[in-house]
């Protein structure tokens, strides 16, 4: 069992390394580099930069060196925990990202909590009462949830709350004036009060999908003979369903933790712009346009690490709840 965990952990490290290479290559792929897009930016506002100046900038950021040297230097910085300079802002990446990463994690976790808390009972209900009126209702809702883009939902919600409820301040994660305050209980409480709406908007599509997954899993499990065995003992129907098939249907449900996280973060970029949430989404978007290697690379890499951690956690949880995985591993050792 321990060797399994170690293997999983090493596989995670390998995945992160692969992610650094792919991240680096993908950011470098578009023609030009940070300096060309920087010059283009300045030119559009009428400033002209001389070739020497551009060259000096390139040298300053090491952009004139071969790609593998750039990668090695970048990796060296990363390993030291120094994420380099955000070129556009001319400030250290660490400072630019600030608490945005933590806020992103909090918003995403809130969305995951929303997904789980609602998707589990709705999925169970839909499977147990398959083809009932309620099942059709939730099926319709989940297809709508999957089909409607979340930024659309955000815009509609903004409009409706402004037009009909005269709520001005639906966007954002803090009350006006709170955002710049130092962290403390009042600020945390303020954020918690602002969390539900972004969480619901970001989580809606994911929830709809997880409801479908849960329903399909449970329908499969309900047909299995061990359910009849449990009934034949004389157990009450609700107890039968809760103890046996729901437990079995949780397996694929738990493995969603791993992949739902990056899906939420990448899906929330536009929502964050619309709702002006201080997450890394908008920052990543701007950094990619500016071809800022250090900033976008750091963000992408942190997201990759979080994904690997999520997958690792879901592996451990699966091992904990599914004896077949535990004993399957014992057999292989």
């Amino acid at each position: 069992m321990v060797s399994y965990i170690i293997r999983r952990f090493l596989a995670g490290l390998l995945t992160i390394w692969a992610a650094t290479v792919i991240t680096f290559v993908v950011i470098q792929l578009p023609p030009g580099d940070f300096v060309t897009s920087y010059i283009a930016n300045l030119q559009s506002s009428g400033t002209v930069i001389r070739a020497e100046e551009a060259e000096a900038l390139r040298q300053q950021y090491g952009l004139d060196r071969p790609m593998y040297v750039q990668y090695a230097k970048w990796m060296g910085l990363m390993l030291k925990g120094n994420f380099g300079m955000a070129m556009e802002y001319n400030r250290p990446v660490r400072e630019v990202i600030g608490d945005r990463m933590a806020i992103t994690v909090v918003v995403s976790l809130a969305a995951v909590a929303f997904i789980w808390v609602l998707a589990l009972p709705i999925g169970v209900y839909s499977a147990v009462r398959q083809y009932s009126l309620g099942d059709y209702f939730f099926t319709f809702l989940s297809f709508a949830g999957i089909a409607i883009p979340n930024f659309m939902l955000a815009l509609v919600l903004l409009y409706v709350s402004f037009k009909y409820f005269d709520v001005q301040n639906i966007g954002g994660l803090f009350s006006p004036g709170m955002a710049l305050e130092p962290w403390g209980w009042p600020k945390v409480w303020d954020m918690i009060k602002h969390l539900p709406i972004p969480a619901v908007i970001i989580g809606m599509a994911g929830m709809a999908e997880v409801v479908r997954i849960m329903r399909a899993n449970l329908l499969d499990e309900l047909r299995k003979p061990y359910v009849v065995t449990a009934r034949a003992k004389g157990l009450a129907e609700t107890r039968v369903i809760a103890k046996y098939p729901v437990r079995a249907a949780l397996n694929p449900f738990i493995s969603t933790i791993g992949y739902i996280f990056p899906f939420l973060v990448s899906g929330s970029i536009i929502v964050s712009l619309v709702l002006s949430l201080p997450t890394v989404g908008p920052l990543l978007y701007k950094a990619l346009i500016a071809q800022d290697l250090f900033l976008s690379g750091t963000i992408l890499l942190l997201l990759a690490i979080l994904t690997v951690i999520g997958t690792f956690i879901s592996d451990l949880l699966l091992m904990w709840i599914d004896p077949r995985i535990r004993f399957g591993m014992e057999g292989s050792n």
Partner: peptide, 24 residues
């Protein structure tokens, strides 16, 4: 339910799938 499993009990064809793999 009081009769099912106590006065009349059932054993099945498929002993493999007739037990939950999640419980001892």
């Amino acid at each position: 339910r009081a009769i099912r499993g106590s006065e009349i009990a059932l054993i099945f064809q498929e002993p493999m799938t007739s037990f939950s793999p999640f419980h001892t």
